[in-house]
Write a protein that binds this DNA or RNA. Sequence first.
DNA 1: CAATCTTACTTGCAAAATACAAGTTAAAAT
DNA 2: ATTTTAACTTGTATTTTGCAAGTAAGATTG
Lengths: 166, 166
Amino acid sequence: MPRKKADSKRRSGCPLNASVEILGDRWSLLIIRDMMLRGFRTYKEFLGSYEGIATNILADRLRKLIAHGIITTEKNPLDGRKVIYSLTPKGIDLAPVLTEMVLWAAAHEDTANQALVHEMRKDKEKFTSAIRQRWAETARAPKRFRSLRSQRLRDVDARRARRGQH
Amino acid sequence: MPRKKADSKRRSGCPLNASVEILGDRWSLLIIRDMMLRGFRTYKEFLGSYEGIATNILADRLRKLIAHGIITTEKNPLDGRKVIYSLTPKGIDLAPVLTEMVLWAAAHEDTANQALVHEMRKDKEKFTSAIRQRWAETARAPKRFRSLRSQRLRDVDARRARRGQH
DNA sequence: CAATCTTACTTGCAAAATACAAGTTAAAAT
DNA sequence: ATTTTAACTTGTATTTTGCAAGTAAGATTG
């Protein structure tokens, strides 16, 4: 079974064209950014992101990212409503692409988040390997239990806080 | 006069969002690839590129790339019909972005052009600085005369060849 | 345990972007 | 003087996007 498969409808075999066909829209990379940098894992979190993606577009993009093997889903066993989205190795490999796009815009456009940019610029390698590190700790199977447990604790806290506000 | 200017309509200040709003479509980066890697400079060359961009879309993308300061135009003084498109420093700074996108797709998708990919993978820095080098030689003002002269000679050759075919 | 929330979606429709075909205009070549 | 070429523009159909309003399954609350 081949791990790579040619998309028969592709306009050309150029690797840049492949990237552009998969990632070349106004939302896909922002979703990946939210997963990679902000640790977002649920539909609701993506919906709440600052840029304000529409719910139908979000559903469509998630579907496409899954189809391209960039993310995967699993159910949260502690709350059957929640779907947990995770980056695959292919997805986490987009870290250098994101990094270069951030650095380019930071150099040539008027943008915010200079702290992030400085960290990236200081040592790209270090930055992307730190991303990988966190991903390996939270998203991969071996340590899943810890991850789910801390998620559950956070949920309990959130509920308690909400009650407190009413 | 500030070299960077905030786009008031931007969805967020995140640098990745800026990149995605400027470059996030199916054609812009392909045009930049053709300029950077294939040395394309004219409308007709872009139109003839393998992926087959539609003429109205091409005109629109070129206009937007100019508006964003990524490319510039000048008239070819030897042929008043021709417009010469060039990458600006901001445009050539996209080389690392292109490189990472190519390497990502080459690693995870079924793509062609393995020679290019190997060269990129062997030494990214070397590759992007070679791109810069060529750009500095052909696109910048100081050596323009040589560039235009060789263009004229190529035109003459092309005409001679066409006549030969009839 | 019935009513109410939450979460992750889907559906319908208007507006915008894209693609395709067919012009148009200015300059160059014949 | 006529034809060709280069760089576009102008319709128009199709596709994609965005917005508002559902819906269904599961969890929480009184």
